[in-house]
Design a binder for these strands. Structure first.
Lengths: 127, 127
DNA sequence: CGGTATCCTGGCTGATACTG
DNA sequence: CAGTATCAGCCAGGATACCG
């Protein structure tokens, strides 16, 4: 479960641009997608409900991010042919497993953001 | 004005701008800082060695990212007053613990990037 | 060697208006 | 309700030149 075999001093990650590790992570951890995955952990959600739960996301960025998550297989988009239209988003199995390491990361951030803040203040004071 | 919060399900993360969870994660997982932390896992590194090991990073972005990591307390910058100058960067204790969930995340990405690629191709073919 | 300073561009992003 | 379309601004990030 090592990140790579580069325990020696090789270069860190290839920068292939075609779904490399860098590519996966950059999309997964960018501003909105991560929050969307978390919002879907409690079960299916509709577009407007997602927008309410994710503070400050614009309709446009919600659309764009949902499309990208769907494209990469993290979420499923179910359209119910009703009037008014209803669309529900759910985590796929892969989307679900992706949240596991993400939750770890969030836990770390919650445990450490106070220390980070104080480091930052100290650094700025010394300048 | 913020919209009323959902009664049943809460909003995901507050967007405080002052070292909140969102703030910590956005800096930690952005393009270069994560790679720098990984490069330092094997021990102290000098500026030029880091630039060699992190493919395609510019001198400028390496400087900027190192400064930010130092400011937030992830790394320590040690200057040796020699000629020519020598500067070594090392992970702090906190920086070290940060890599634990990050490595988990990288492991997930490595295990899943093939499936992500195939999802993506399927999605694009259906359009 | 290990950076700064400066300029500049492309892509991310938000705002607004419109629609099936 | 659940989007699209269009436009404009900003800033992360690259290129280049210079410096202690």
């Amino acid at each position: 479960m090592k990140p790579q075999q580069n325990v020696t001093k090789n270069s860190i990650f290839p920068d292939n641009e075609n779904c490399s590790v860098r590519d996966v992570l950059s999309k997964l951890t960018s501003k909105w997608p991560m929050l969307i995955l978390f919002a879907l952990l409690d079960g299916p959600e509709r577009f407007s409900s997602l927008q309410r739960r994710i503070e400050n996301i614009s309709r446009r960025m919600l659309t764009v991010s949902l499309r990208q998550l769907e494209r990469d297989g993290y979420i499923h988009r179910q359209v119910y042919p009703e009037v008014p239209p209803r669309v529900e988003y759910t985590l796929t199995k892969m989307g679900n497993t992706a949240t596991i390491p993400l939750i770890e990361l969030v836990g770390w951030a919650e445990r450490n953001h106070n220390e980070i803040r104080s480091c930052r203040e100290k650094f700025d004071a010394d300048k």
